[in-house]
Nucleic acid binder design. Sequence first.
DNA 1: TTGTTAATTTGTAATGATTACAAAATAGAA
DNA 2: TTCTATTTTGTAATCATTACAAATTAACAA
Lengths: 134, 134
Amino acid sequence: MTAFKEHLSKHDIKPSVQRLKIYEYLHNSHNHPTADDIYRALAPSTPTLSKTTVYNTMKLFISNGVATVLNIEGNELRYDADTSTHGHFKCKGCGNVYDFRIARAPEFNGVEGFRIDKYEINLKGYCNVCKPKL
Amino acid sequence: MTAFKEHLSKHDIKPSVQRLKIYEYLHNSHNHPTADDIYRALAPSTPTLSKTTVYNTMKLFISNGVATVLNIEGNELRYDADTSTHGHFKCKGCGNVYDFRIARAPEFNGVEGFRIDKYEINLKGYCNVCKPKL
DNA sequence: TTGTTAATTTGTAATGATTACAAAATAGAA
DNA sequence: TTCTATTTTGTAATCATTACAAATTAACAA
Ligand SMILES: [Mn+2]
Ligand SMILES: [Mn+2]
Ligand SMILES: [Zn+2]
Ligand SMILES: [Zn+2]
């Protein structure tokens, strides 16, 4: 996919083989994978891949604006190639992380004059598949 | 403070000495402390206190509804005795976590039928003290 | 009071994700 | 090719959290 190459280049990321594979996987998967998910998915087809590379690459992607990181669960970081404004719902049943759109933006009272760089809305509960099984 | 005792009892938490001290500290501090913050604050006046007790107690407080946990930073859990609906802003300069009120609630599109148990809005950036120093 | 049991607390070891670091491999320019 | 900068890799270290079992304390009946 040369489109991915251009996207990375446009954000000052040299598109190495590893970076391209990681970006391609992240972009095609909509499950908000952890670093370990990415590593385990790519390791078979990239035998020399190192988990450190996944972490390094994700840091690079984030600071260059082609990915975001999700703090929805305390003990794991999840990554997302969708950098548009949207929220996340983590199901306590199946563990899936769902995207949702913010139909009406919230308004805040108490951060006047602050510089807001990042804005995260995280929900937790049970999705409509898991809820009936409770 | 007998008011704290009653508050814990009302939520089915037996008010032991350790639990009371932890709750009192959490309630009086508005800095959203980590487990380690709580431990270090109370250890001098409670020499036998164990960090495990802090973690155990926070889990109990959360499941019994007298505290909430904050996933604003990937590598640390922060606790809050304010269980009312409000958002948090973490300053990348000073590290402080500020509360803010949600003047107008957001509306979501894509979680219809889901059971939402928890709802977190986390902002990051620079507070009005740190912003001018950039 | 004493004895018996359940609840709570404690200390230590284990876990697991992330980071630090330095060597090895690779790419790019001259 | 040769030189140099960049990227990747493997391993060890870090650090927050959890698991676990022993020790302490509380509850309560006899
Ligand atoms: Mn997403
Ligand atoms: Mn708060
Ligand atoms: Zn589910
Ligand atoms: Zn600040």
